[in-house]
Amino acid sequence: MELKARVLVVGGGAIGGLFAWRLSLSKEATVSIVCRSNYAQVKSSGYDINSAQFGHAVYRPLRVYQSVEDAVAKEGTFDYVIVALKALPNIYDSSERVSAAVGDDTMVVLFQNGIGIEEPFVKRFPHAAVVSTVSFVSVKQEESAVLRHGGFSMLASGLHSCERSTQNRNLAKLHILSDLFASQGVSSIVEADIQPYRWQKHILNGSTNPVSVISGGASCQEMVRNEYCRALLEDVMAEIFMLGKKVTGKSFPGVDGIIDPKSATEYIETIPVPVYTSMLVDSQCKRPMEREVILKNPIALADKHGVDVPRMKALYALVTMVEAGYK
């Protein structure tokens, strides 16, 4: 690897824009970004970022591209490819979309929601290091290239797969990336087993996302203030706790003090500004929702492990009908 880490962020939405910005502030990295719907705005004016944690900034990426192929034509392959695309396996294969930028020594770092997101990358890049990263952050793209970020950002990363002979080298490489984020104010840790963290985040993702769509557009706080909706959320969360512990064989790490369904809904109550889920925003914009990785993949694991998840199955059926009804 060169003296400066060469990073390509694929997906210029809220997550990609925020973390590309933090990484770009390090003198030890050069960061390029691939944008789609907001390409023209980012290219001309950059991102306007309002962050309760970091303050206000205008972030103008060093290089902005419309496609991975354009980035590779200009710069070749990269040391790190951060995948911040929506996880929509029923629409497209994220691993295929980034494949041009992945060389022999590229580390593929997945900043995607959901369960089971890693396998397409392992299959496509059997010799590459695939890292699963879980982001605990509240950030929203309010309009094109305008980001609003809350007061907290945390990343938990772990090597999901790599060739045994390269494990020590790739672990060191992952620590370099983690330290770069930490140097710019992002809480960033490397874990030997990242899946409990992924299930920890899924407690909120797998419950509030689909319920917000079905509820007709409620914020997370509005949902927990309704006694019936709160009870539903806690029942879904209980299924996720049970399933995640069965799949991983471990307890969850308790990020944000969330150790059971009750503490999860109590945490939501403490958030000072209304939170609207990404799945809700997608449904309101008539865009495909991440229903496969948020619901279908966990349901398949439940069937495999003999865990009963009737509420998750009901939510999957309902959001599928909502998406099928787009006009």
Rank of each mutant, 00 (worst) to 15 (best):
residue 181 F to S: 12
residue 199 W to V: 00
residue 137 V to K: 02
residue 77 T to K: 13
residue 292 E to A: 02
residue 92 Y to N: 01
residue 279 M to W: 12
residue 107 M to Y: 02
residue 41 Q to D: 12
residue 74 K to T: 11
residue 225 R to V: 00
residue 153 S to C: 15
residue 318 L to R: 00
residue 47 Y to L: 05
residue 209 N to P: 04
residue 300 A to N: 13
residue 301 L to M: 15
residue 312 M to L: 15
residue 163 E to W: 00
residue 178 S to P: 01
residue 250 K to Y: 02
residue 217 G to C: 11
residue 277 T to Y: 05
residue 245 K to Q: 14
residue 213 V to Q: 03
residue 6 R to G: 04
residue 284 Q to H: 03
residue 206 G to R: 10
residue 125 F to R: 11
residue 175 H to E: 08
residue 220 C to I: 07
residue 210 P to S: 09
residue 208 T to N: 04
residue 222 E to T: 09
residue 31 V to T: 02
residue 74 K to W: 03
residue 204 L to H: 02
residue 223 M to D: 11
residue 183 S to D: 08
residue 315 L to C: 05
residue 129 A to Y: 12
residue 147 L to I: 13
residue 79 D to C: 06
residue 107 M to T: 13
residue 76 G to Q: 06
residue 42 V to G: 10
residue 326 Y to T: 09
residue 83 V to A: 05
residue 18 L to N: 11
residue 250 K to M: 09
residue 179 D to A: 10
residue 110 L to I: 05
residue 195 Q to F: 04
residue 101 A to Q: 00
residue 148 R to Y: 07
residue 8 L to M: 09
residue 223 M to N: 03
residue 203 I to F: 06
residue 249 G to M: 01
residue 227 E to L: 14
residue 255 V to H: 15
residue 175 H to Y: 13
residue 166 T to V: 06
residue 281 V to D: 11
residue 11 G to D: 13
residue 135 S to M: 14
residue 231 A to I: 08
residue 108 V to W: 00
residue 221 Q to H: 03
residue 115 I to F: 01
residue 158 G to W: 08
residue 62 L to K: 15
residue 166 T to P: 00
residue 275 V to G: 10
residue 175 H to L: 05
residue 87 A to C: 04
residue 256 D to M: 10
residue 16 G to A: 00
residue 40 A to P: 04
residue 248 T to Y: 09
residue 81 V to I: 09
residue 265 T to G: 07
residue 102 V to Y: 00
residue 45 S to D: 13
residue 34 V to A: 08
residue 183 S to M: 04
residue 141 Q to E: 15
residue 278 S to V: 02
residue 310 P to N: 04
residue 237 M to C: 09
residue 303 D to K: 13
residue 122 V to I: 15
residue 58 V to Q: 03
residue 85 L to M: 11
residue 243 L to W: 05
residue 70 D to S: 12
residue 159 L to F: 11
residue 302 A to S: 12
residue 246 K to M: 00
residue 34 V to P: 10
residue 177 L to N: 02
residue 324 A to R: 12
residue 274 P to K: 01
residue 82 I to T: 01
residue 37 S to G: 03
residue 300 A to W: 08
residue 285 C to V: 08
residue 34 V to R: 07
residue 203 I to T: 00
